[in-house]
């Protein structure tokens, strides 16, 4: 997994609440058996007309946001399906960080597995950052994971919380499976005990 340490980049504002995984990546793109190539289809139904032409006023089609690496989004971002194609599409587009007041649980976990940092902040702080994002490409935000701080283009700092294990994995680009494999003997022991206690499982 790609490491995430510090990022300074353009933030795109998406104030809509309840942006669901069907909006992020519609199901007709789920038929791939690969993990890559979804970026062009990110937000497909909001981003393109049926004939494939771009919808000009969609935020990521606007010239100042085409290179966005951060999203500032409305409440409950990523609700809906468990499809990891949603973070795959976001990452493939080039977005590495999403800031919102809340995220759906599965999407939140999926993001960390793909080198994307989702940040939860209180409403009033997200409001400030949303305004900052609306300034366009001259206003660059900085995300510092090590120190757990978002810095707006005006230099205002917003500390955020992140689970220590998830932070460790993201900072170091660690693969969880490898880490868990190191605990194989604990799994063996658990399995032996559980097969005594609950042999029907």
């Amino acid at each position: 997994m790609e490491k995430f340490e510090k990022l300074t980049g353009i933030a795109a504002p998406m104030p809509l609440v309840n942006i669901d995984t069907d909006m992020i990546i519609p199901k007709r793109f789920l038929k791939s058996i690969k993990r890559t190539g979804f970026g062009v289809s990110l937000f497909d139904e909001m981003r393109y007309n049926r004939d494939g032409s771009e919808i000009a006023d969609f935020v990521l089609n606007q010239p100042q946001y085409r290179e966005a690496e951060i999203l500032v989004a409305g409440d409950n971002f990523g609700c809906g399906s468990s499809r990891e194609h949603a973070p795959w599409a976001i990452k493939d587009f080039g977005i590495r960080c999403i800031i919102s007041t809340s995220f759906a649980d599965i999407f939140y976990n999926n993001s960390f597995k793909n080198g994307i940092l989702p940040i939860v902040l209180p409403q009033e702080q997200v409001d400030v950052l949303m305004k900052d994002a609306e300034k366009g490409s001259n206003a660059r935000m900085t995300i510092d994971l090590e120190n757990q701080v978002v810095t707006s283009s005006d230099g205002e700092e917003f500390p955020f919380e992140v689970d220590s294990f998830k932070k460790h994995c993201l900072l170091n680009g660690l693969d969880d499976i490898g880490l868990t494999m190191e605990k194989a003997s604990s799994i063996d022991t658990f399995e032996a005990q559980a097969s005594q206690a609950r042999p029907w499982v």
Binding site: S81, S82, R83, E84, P87, I106, N110, D176, I177
Partner: peptide, 9 residues
Amino acid sequence: GIGTSEVEH
């Protein structure tokens, strides 16, 4: 529910 990375895990 879990994502595909967790399916692999």
